[in-house]
Design a protein around this nucleic acid. Structure first.
Lengths: 341, 341
DNA sequence: TTGAAAGCGCTAACAT
DNA sequence: ATGTTAGCGCTTTCAA
């Protein structure tokens, strides 16, 4: 019985154990170059027996190739980002590339720090949420000379590639749909998050279209922190007790929309006759509600997939392929809460 | 105006731009060793102006120190793991350590692959969900000579440290509480996931205690995939139409419990008189439901914090500190759905 | 307080 | 098909 070493194993250990040169061992373990079947078998056996785990730090330094893709998102707290991440993992799975996640909490300075931290590992690409970054962050991304895909949003000027939806347009289309159904006394419920640029843009697109039709938001309510479902209830109650004649509530996300819906149903409101509702995101959760909340699909998984596809393609062939711009089209799902006519 | 270089900047570039030796530049950027204030300033200015991002691959190879902590979890799809991750990030934030997440989809072979992948980056520690792993995974973890914390579960033999709750006990305590309230015709609703060992253990603890009291599960229903809220509804309906005399439903997670609760309320059931309900996890979402579902807090954030604390401590002082075992105590929250008496 | 030399564990490029 | 050599960009160690 051999005594297990106190230090991590190296190629040399496998080389000695198998009687094959380090270089050939390296080739076998990477499936690179021609190695006879006999040698491969010897090496594989030795590596397995020893429990050798290659040192990618050394490998990456030597080859100046890193199989990591940095993925930077604002939050894990709501269900929107996990789905984007799934789309990314799923698509990257077959490519040898590995996603590494970083979370910014919607703070630009944190984003900057996380980005610096990740770039210091010299990843093969970056997928980052949003188009708004600090000057320093933009500078880092531009200097990095690697594919960068900004996701979720297409209203603005991307650094490189971009996959997302237009939130201004999403807001506008929802406004159109609401007006078309004949609603006029419209309330808005959202988050108190100046740094959530996508929510802000939806709001802008929404109010702008209303204004064009001569309609103004009749009342609004904002929240931060806590259970979104509960906040949705509370805000809805507050809004309606202050402005009882509202005939429509536009929620900036489905979770608060669901809370509002539950509360209104309990109170015996006639939906969508007396009051209509809409949220945003198209989360799976809505399927289980007593009524189908109207919403707009944010194409989350699709965005993840596309972004990963772009990164993978650029990594496989760095020469070709310019800065792709993919604008996805989110469709309104009218559900049961947006059909007055 | 200088022409930006086509290759990533190195220490040497900063050295040349600042007129300070590479070694001293390295010291400044790491805040290590004594360097005069004047030199520091020169170096900092040069690094900032050039937009230098250190190469951690080279740094880690040279120092054989890596600031990464591998975090391996089964899924991001439900809200249980994101909260664990938050606890970890939060606690690691001040330590210079950086979490890197990997997802296994509840597949042992995927776990093995992800683990291998992560260990090849020579992380400073591993946090991994569960106590059940393949032989190869266990072997890798043991050879790695780094702190390993298995989380979420304490029913079993950990490889090294361990932070979690006893799911058998959680199941047993819920059974006790249900029986104590006088319920006897009990239905169980859960997931079709043989690899979800924690759900399995809760189920075992639950049925075992019932058996001791001479009670058997009257009926059960399992699901996989889809919106958990919706599945909760559907399963509840199916179960009650098959076995109408049930007086209690134990759901293996809060999301399906919430679905069941909503359906029962719509049908006009008297809760908790006619039928009682309980879930598991203590998710924030429950706060916004029309009634407070009884549940058991799985201490998710706390588990993340503790695990991170252990890793950080062991990294700071590798000598001392054996394999800590932390068993947290999940408390029953009776809510509105578990109080017949 | 600063610098020079050696080498971390691997792989590219070039032998053989 | 296999081996040899020379680094990758940084930090450790030792010297000045």
């Amino acid at each position: 019985m051999t005594i297990p070493p106190r230090r991590p194993l190296t190629l040399r250990d496998v080389s000695e154990a198998s009687g094959v040169s380090e270089m050939t061992v390296s080739r076998v373990l990477r499936n690179k170059g021609d190695v006879s079947e006999a040698t491969r078998a010897k090496v594989r056996a030795a590596a397995k027996k020893l429990g050798y785990v290659p040192n990618r730090i050394a490998g990456s330094l030597a080859s100046s190739r890193v199989n990591l893709v940095a993925v930077i998102i604002p939050s894990l707290g709501n269900m929107v980002f996990p789905e984007v991440l799934s789309g990314i993992s799923e698509t990257l799975a077959g490519t040898g590339l590995q996603p590494v996640f970083g979370v910014t909490d919607y703070l630009p300075e944190t984003e900057e720090r996380v980005l610096f931290e990740m770039l210091s590992w010299r990843p093969s690409g970056v997928i980052i949420a949003g188009l708004e970054h600090t000057e320093a962050s933009r500078a880092m991304l531009m200097r990095a000379e690697i594919p960068v895909v900004e996701i979720m949003d297409s209203d603005g000027a991307p650094i490189d590639a971009c996959v997302g939806i237009s939130h201004r347009r999403a807001g506008r289309e929802m406004a159109e749909a609401i007006l078309r159904e004949g609603y006029r006394r419209i309330g808005f419920l959202g988050t108190k998050m100046p740094a959530d640029h996508r929510a802000r843009k939806r709001f802008e697109g929404f109010t702008r279209h209303l204004a064009r039709a001569g309609v103004e938001i009749a009342d609004q309510e904002f929240y931060s922190g806590g259970s979104a479902l509960k906040k949705g209830r509370e805000m809805t109650e507050a809004l309606l007790s202050r402005t009882p004649d509202l005939d429509f509530l536009y929620f900036s996300n489905d979770m608060i929309g669901a809370g509002g819906l539950l509360w209104l149903l309990e109170q015996g409101f006639d939906i969508p006759g007396q009051i209509g509702l809409a949220g945003f995101n198209g989360v799976e959760l809505l399927d289980g509600l007593p009524r189908q909340l109207a919403t707009m699909d944010a194409c989350r998984r699709e965005i993840g997939r596309e972004a990963a596809r772009i990164i993978a393609a650029r990594c496989a062939n760095p020469a070709e392929g310019g800065a792709e711009r993919v604008e996805l089209t989110p469709l309104i799902a009218r559900g049961d809460t947006l059909r007055r006519r």
